[in-house]
Simulated scan of single mutants.
Amino acid sequence: MWQGVIPAVSTKFNEDGSLDMGEMERCFGLQMEAGCDGLIACGSLGEGPMLTQDERIAVLRLTKQVTGSKPAILTVAEAGTREACALAEKAAKAGADGLMVVPSTIYHSNHRETIVALRAIAAAGDLPIMIYSNRLAYRVDVTTDMLEELADDARFVAVKESSDDIRRTTEIINRLGQRYDLFTGVDNLAFEALAVGAVGWVAGLVLAFPKETVAIFRLMKEDRQAEALSIYRWFRPLLDLDVSTYLVQNIKLAEAMALGSTERVRAPRLPLEGEQRARAERIIRAAMETRPQLPRFG
């Protein structure tokens, strides 16, 4: 159902902390112009949890305006199942094409609790769902056994695999074949995951470098691995910025330097400063100065 590069877009703010809808529309549009295959709004490791549900729905509506016929997906990552179900219902009414669902972000639910929560959210929204499995960030591992158990519900269509163990991609495919659209959710494992069968990439640094990200994916799909790998090796220092507690600040800094966007974040986050900022700037500047010439692809 879903495949390709689907960025987890960043939320833009005005100086007073309100949503900067104009800048989001501009930046989201750049992703689609580069050939991305949809957008995911209000990411769970991004600033989605810092937004009210009404703000998230507003961002979703804007996202859908930009994606047109391509999917606009809202992240559902709430501490409680009741709140997650309420957001799923609102997203469906607002025109979401699907949901990316994280099990409880606070309570570390066990196998049975995780299954029950995911089924409840699916029923509430009645939309296609990408299950977000990230045991490192949330300590809840949506295992291959769980995916097999959930496979009887056709609303579960995709998995964002972020276990940080590249072997998991092959394990899921070996067990479940093509039952789920399998996405990699770790920027600096993207080439590896695509090489062993992932059909999509929920990307982060794509927000600052969309054309390069799309080129890697398209080249991999055309079995042009050597060309994709050359771009990926250039990209790796940037992609490492996504695997960080400060991924939001890193990505927004990259967007500011590469696209002229803003770095504003919502508290408790603050923009980078000192040596941490200087290091990120060096990585981004070096990448911008050595951007590869992209080959033609279908």
Rank of each mutant, 00 (worst) to 15 (best):
109 S>H: 14
240 D>W: 00
45 L>A: 15
217 F>T: 00
138 Y>A: 08
11 T>N: 15
244 S>Y: 03
257 M>Q: 02
294 L>M: 07
51 L>T: 12
218 R>N: 09
227 E>M: 09
164 D>G: 02
231 I>E: 01
104 S>V: 12
276 Q>N: 13
233 R>V: 07
226 A>V: 12
112 R>A: 15
281 E>W: 02
157 V>Y: 08
160 K>C: 05
113 E>K: 07
162 S>L: 00
108 H>A: 14
27 C>K: 11
280 A>N: 11
57 I>H: 06
174 N>F: 03
278 A>N: 13
261 S>V: 03
226 A>W: 06
150 L>K: 00
179 R>M: 03
52 T>A: 11
295 P>S: 05
279 R>G: 09
15 E>L: 14
37 D>I: 03
87 L>E: 06
108 H>D: 11
144 T>R: 08
25 E>C: 09
238 L>K: 01
221 K>F: 00
284 I>A: 02
180 Y>A: 01
272 L>Q: 02
16 D>V: 07
209 F>L: 08
6 I>K: 05
236 R>N: 02
76 V>P: 04
199 V>T: 12
159 V>E: 00
83 E>W: 10
124 A>G: 13
10 S>I: 14
198 A>H: 03
3 Q>E: 15
64 K>V: 02
55 E>A: 09
72 A>D: 10
61 R>D: 03
69 S>I: 11
99 L>N: 05
298 G>E: 15
55 E>C: 08
291 R>T: 12
12 K>A: 14
220 M>C: 04
204 G>M: 04
147 L>Q: 08
80 G>I: 14
140 V>E: 01
70 K>T: 10
101 V>T: 13
168 R>E: 11
145 D>T: 01
242 D>A: 15
236 R>L: 07
86 A>G: 07
268 P>W: 08
238 L>P: 01
215 A>F: 00
121 I>W: 07
91 A>W: 11
256 A>M: 10
76 V>N: 09
105 T>M: 12
286 A>I: 01
259 L>N: 09
278 A>G: 07
204 G>C: 06
66 V>I: 15
135 R>C: 11
233 R>D: 04
62 L>K: 12
252 K>F: 04
215 A>N: 00
296 R>S: 13
32 M>P: 10
55 E>W: 11
32 M>D: 08
133 S>Q: 02
97 D>S: 13
257 M>S: 00
147 L>M: 14
52 T>N: 10
294 L>S: 03
182 L>V: 01
297 F>K: 10
250 N>T: 07
273 E>A: 15
279 R>D: 11
226 A>N: 13
160 K>R: 08
138 Y>L: 13
87 L>P: 04
248 V>A: 04
127 L>A: 09
153 D>Y: 08
122 A>C: 09
239 L>S: 01
131 I>C: 04
268 P>K: 11
170 T>S: 13
121 I>M: 09
61 R>Y: 06
91 A>V: 11
176 L>Y: 10
277 R>G: 05
88 A>Y: 09
253 L>M: 09
258 A>K: 06
213 T>L: 01
81 T>W: 03
95 G>L: 03
